[in-house]
């Protein structure tokens, strides 16, 4: 009999996530914790965190954390890494944080090829403020600021974050994964670990966009939310690895 699953050492032993029931943030945090553990860098890790549900990471992780202004985590991660190139530096952000208010910082951090890792939770809404339209909100999706559904004419189109990041020459790895099923969770774990490894190997910017549920603001059960990811989100945001410099 051997132990085949344990919680990551990165996460505090007494941690109790404060996310809503069924929210995939918890899965993403666990996978990231596993990746950091497996890379053996927990004690050399510094996280840059902004604003939104993602910021709660600092309450749950046993690592050094810096709170940043909304959207600026990748700029602050750049500063941390330039000051201490020997440290493992990552940001954990929502789609609004990474790709709306902070997109300039994000895309330039990738373009410069900063040796940092960014994880972006794409749940097509601003979760913490109660479900407003974000950069990735689907066409037709009802939010508190698109009461008639997102219209392309009025609100423009959802942003394809991982594809944008993959276009940057400084990006070493960019992928989009999903947490809607066990099979996809396993693939997500592999991608997150890869995004960490490219930093450690000094290859460039590592990025993973994670399609993630927000049952509360989507007004769905956790099960319906995962079905929504499969049926509505993945057709718009295809899963896959868009750039991987370790593969020829």
């Amino acid at each position: 009999m051997q132990q085949v699953f344990k919680l990551p050492d990165c996460i505090k032993k007494d941690a109790k996530f404060t996310f809503c029931p069924g929210c995939d943030h918890g899965v993403a945090l666990r996978l990231l914790g596993d990746a950091i553990d497996e890379c053996g860098v927990r004690e050399d890790t510094i996280a840059a965190l902004c604003v939104g549900c993602s910021v709660f990471l600092y309450d749950f992780y046993d690592i050094d954390c810096l709170e940043c202004p909304h959207g600026r985590a990748t700029a602050e991660a750049t500063g941390i890494k330039r000051a201490r190139p020997d440290k493992f530096v990552f940001t954990y952000q929502g789609d609004g944080d990474f790709a709306a208010i902070g997109f300039a910082e994000s895309i330039y951090t990738a373009t410069r090829g900063e040796k940092v890792t960014s994880i972006c939770i794409n749940n097509t809404t601003y979760g913490m403020t109660g479900g407003q339209m974000g950069p990735t909100t689907l066409l037709g999706q009802v939010t508190t600021t698109t009461p008639f559904g997102r219209s392309a004419e009025l609100n423009g189109y959802p942003m394809k974050i991982a594809e944008h990041i993959a276009l940057c020459d400084g990006t070493a790895f960019s992928a989009r994964v999903s947490l809607d099923s066990v099979a996809n969770i396993i693939k997500a774990k592999q991608a997150i670990k890869k995004a960490c490894e490219v930093q450690i190997k000094g290859l460039g910017f590592g990025f993973v966009e994670i399609l993630s549920s927000c049952p509360t603001n989507w007004k769905m059960t956790p099960q319906e939310a995962h079905r929504h990811i499969r049926e509505k989100m993945i057709p718009v945001f295809p899963l896959g690895v868009f750039k991987d410099v370790t593969k020829g």
Binding site: M1, V4, A15, K16, G22, H25, G26, V182, I185
Partner: peptide, 17 residues
């Protein structure tokens, strides 16, 4: 481990096989 991988709240803490 499918249950543990899916749980968003760390409620499944260990799996043995």
């Amino acid at each position: 481990k499918c249950c543990a991988l899916t749980c968003p709240d760390l409620a499944i803490t260990e799996v043995y096989k």
